[in-house]
Write a protein that binds this DNA or RNA. Structure first.
Lengths: 361, 361
DNA sequence: TTTAGCACTCAATGTGCTTAAGTGCTAACC
DNA sequence: GGTTAGCACTTAAGCACATTGAGTGCTAAA
């Protein structure tokens, strides 16, 4: 496995150095490490070891007369060595419970809230992700008349969300006409994803509808738009300002790029979409292949229901020298508590149109 | 009117100084102003005038040997003197049209898009505001059954938006039961705002509903939540990163506070909610009484339909030395084009559940 | 009333010196 | 052979100090 080439002493030195650097944010020198009781040797020895660790790629030196700083590889070794044995104090668990024990809201809201909690507890920027939903379909259409020219079209989507559009019919609408429309939509369009709605189908629909067929094109357009809208992933950010407390972001240009990325969302969405499994993911610096993230790390965890559906993900973004131990513990704690809440049978039995329908459990 | 006490020459000097400062961002000296052909006198004369302008409160001096900087009062004079005669080049108008000529979406989306356009054109941070909606009511309830345990409750709100919730009924639901519930909700709850739903009403509803009355409390709770949700204003931000290009925000602590305010949204929402009329509002620095905004200005304009309903507002946030002429022109241009779009009869006849129903025009 | 001239102020910039932290290397040590 | 003490070397950071230059206020003359 990764890092096997290292002697026990090298590992100890590397671990101590990473931790010291995470805490202080400054290069760590050999002398400082001698204070660590786990490493019982002189600064000269440590210097020799550090030189080798640098040659192996685990450490870097900002300039000749400075101490060492972990490389991305160094951080990676550190994170791997943590190996899921991060634990939280009961006090912290208590705090998560307190913060999350608010009235339940839609899933989106819960994820956002959870990411805010994670952000608060860790002091890094929180992210809440609603995943992409390629190929959603409308499973069922409903509708009702508002007035002689307006009706509301309700679409129950395949991912269990509900969308409504209020539609104005210039030529008037009544419940009979609307009923026919809904029936036909359920017959011809329900179950199709956006790429399956082809011209022949629309034409067949038109001919069936007869007199009111001029109606159909704009409505199909609306349905199409709704599908695309549900398709798109979403990313919500909280606590951007927290990043500014870390000196790595005091370089204005760098921070500006980061802000841009947080606003654009596309890149970060891609990183999170490429998650492996539903365990905690740690993406360190250039591992992400997104340029602006090269000096930052993302830690996130997909959130799934007990029956395996992915609801989204929560996580935090911070500098390379993120306090991984704390962050991993916090994300694990928050997402664990979240799972409890989501699967708790004592839930209020409602979700928003934006949210999910709880399917019988 | 404001600034009447000033001689023509003082006005010219003040205007030239504000413009020079807006452009360069640095204190402006007397010598520089002699280059302005509108002001035909020596630097010594200008110095005398500037000393008087400072005494009157229009200018400030960072330190003795620096030039002068406009005070908030100075900016205010400048903005007032612009007096709505800001014009855009046809090229810029063209650009707005190009940028806004996308497919129509919900009102929220249009406002957000328009604020993004304003942000891009001016290079300041854009804001899109959906106003508070105190005392919304549900004008009509609808519902339909999804499966034997789930139904969807549709609420048409008094501000013409539509909200849906999917609700799980532990004891089962059928269309008869649901029909009775909807009828009763329409009879007892429709037309009431959240503070008018009192316990006696709920109890009456319960007794009418008879056997299935244990149902009613959670549903009322849901309706209550939806009302509060619609009640709340919303604020969307775009282009925060643009602020970083202005040296006034390179002071990290200051920028951090600003970021906090942009994220919290409450303060800015308050400022925009206190808008006077539906013309362009300019809030300069401490005029806003919100501390974090003391070194920034907000320019925004409420967006109303032709029949007078307020849909929201768009605007930009930037440093005190914002290019007011350009910003005013841009906001006027964008909001004008927006009004065209919103009132255009050739609109697709749809709006989202989050958006508005076009009421017959 | 305007302007030229001049002494004065003060931030910004540059320069050299010192300091302190940290390294690499060598030679002695166990 | 691994470990350590010692020392020369490197470098960023901090500090004092002089220099510069933009800009002012004031005075006296035009």
């Amino acid at each position: 496995m990764f890092g096997d080439e290292l002697s026990e002493r090298k590992r100890r030195i590397l671990k101590a150095l990473v931790e010291a650097h995470i805490e202080a944010g400054e290069p760590v020198g050999s002398k400082f490490l001698t204070e660590n009781k786990q490493i019982a040797c002189s600064s000269a020895t440590i210097r020799n070891e550090m030189a080798e660790l640098e040659a192996l790629g685990y450490l870097e030196q900002p300039h000749t007369s400075a101490g060492r700083v972990p490389s991305e590889m160094g951080y990676r070794f550190y994170v791997n060595s943590l190996a899921h044995d991060y634990a939280m104090t009961t006090c912290e668990i208590e705090e998560i419970n307190k913060l999350l024990k608010v009235k339940m809201k839609e899933v989106d809201q819960i994820l956002l809230l959870a990411s805010k909690v994670a952000s608060t507890l860790t002091n890094y920027t929180g992210i809440a992700v609603k995943p992409r939903n390629p190929g959603v379909t409308v499973t069922r259409f409903e509708g009702f008349v508002i007035d002689s020219n307006t009706f509301i079209l309700v679409m129950v989507m395949s991912n269990s969300t509900v969308k409504t559009k209020s539609i104005r019919a210039e030529n008037g609408i009544d419940s009979g006409k609307l009923g026919r429309l809904i029936t036909l939509l359920n017959r011809y369009i329900a179950g199709l994803n956006s790429s399956e709605i082809t011209l022949p189908i629309i034409m067949e629909l038109e001919s069936e509808l007869g007199a009111d067929s001029e109606f159909i094109t704009p409505i199909i357009k609306i349905i199409y738009d709704v599908m695309n809208e549900v398709d798109r992933g979403e990313l919500k950010i909280s606590g951007v300002d927290r990043l500014l407390q870390y000196p790595e972001y005091s370089d204005t240009e760098e921070f500006r790029e980061m802000l841009g990325a947080l606003e654009d969302k596309e890149d970060i969405l891609n990183i999170v979409s490429g998650a492996k499994g539903d365990s905690i993911n740690v993406v360190i610096g250039s591992e992400s292949s997104v340029k602006v993230m090269n000096h930052s790390s993302i830690v996130f965890k997909p959130i799934t229901t007990r029956d395996g559906r992915t609801l989204g993900a929560i996580g935090v973004i911070g500098p390379l020298r993120m306090d991984y131990a704390k962050v991993l513990a916090t994300i694990a704690g928050v997402s664990g508590r979240l799972a409890d809440l989501l699967n708790d049978t004592s839930l209020p039995e409602s979700k928003d149109s934006e949210g999910d329908i709880k399917d019988g459990q």
